[in-house]
Design a protein around this nucleic acid. Sequence first.
DNA 1: GGGACCATGTAAGTTGTTACATGATTAG
DNA 2: CTAATCATGTAACAACTTACATGGTCCC
Lengths: 172, 172
Amino acid sequence: MTCMSLRHAALGLLAQQPGSGYDLLRRFETTLGNVWPASQSQLYTELNRLARDGLIEVSAIGGRGRKEYAVLPPGRQELRAWLASPAEPEERSELLLKVFLLDQLAPADARAQLRWISADAEATLQRLAAIDAEGDWDESDAYERLALEFGLRYARMKAEWAAWAVEQLDLS
Amino acid sequence: MTCMSLRHAALGLLAQQPGSGYDLLRRFETTLGNVWPASQSQLYTELNRLARDGLIEVSAIGGRGRKEYAVLPPGRQELRAWLASPAEPEERSELLLKVFLLDQLAPADARAQLRWISADAEATLQRLAAIDAEGDWDESDAYERLALEFGLRYARMKAEWAAWAVEQLDLS
DNA sequence: GGGACCATGTAAGTTGTTACATGATTAG
DNA sequence: CTAATCATGTAACAACTTACATGGTCCC
């Protein structure tokens, strides 16, 4: 059994609010996709699979072939089980892979890469802070805000670490 | 052009020190695999591809069919170019995906998940701190230590965030 | 009628996983 | 001699991407 997170992402969005593949795609693009991107092709395929497996059903048919999906009880159960199960630690980080191998670069180039990481993190920080400030939040967005705060703290940590790392290299 | 990071990971390890697929596998298991896991099957396949593409070559043949690989100049160039290029921000986080969808769980269960995340981060923190303390580091491990420090800071951030998140939920 | 947008799907290719399959050498 | 370890490879499958393909509806 592998991960199948897209399946759960789709299930979760439908559990929050029924909709068509097209609707879900919009929601991925605006919010969820920031933490779990999905391509159009993959999403439509997965919706058909979820329906085939009896976790969701076509609850309404609209114009232009629109199929609105709704979660069925087995789907809700599957979603809850997945949500309550321990989240596995993430493993792959291209950033850290580069850091591990940075000794293959001239020191000046390695420093440049670290400075770039720092600048990128600062930019992310600004971007998320803007979203935080201007967003019109209500109580239903509580968990979304937790995720945003995670992003803020992560960007801050990354920027601080990169600055520290450059300093370390300067010492030696 | 997609990512091909395993290719660069293998290239990087060979650039640090030539070796066989079996050797590399050991090094993935002990160090590099912490930031970029590779399966045996994938690694051997990739080494053959790297050789076919002229980025590495079989530099020696040992007993039991052992093939020692070494990086060729085009491989070194490719590696340096990749290392100096900006690291793309990582996108997928199963953890944050769960956080986004946590509203589908009873509040008590959501809190339990967050507490589990916190406990897991604390455990990681302990584990990495132990590695940091007992490791016998020399100057050649400078970048490895930067990566370790990143892991420490990240685990700390995660634990603090999760504790804060539980608090937030308790307030509402 | 034509452009923007709504709406769904398939095909080919890449990356990665697990499982299978095989054989050589070394140490007890 | 036999178990552990060294050593490499293939096949089947899952997840994901990009590109292709098609058609309906709304609004100007």
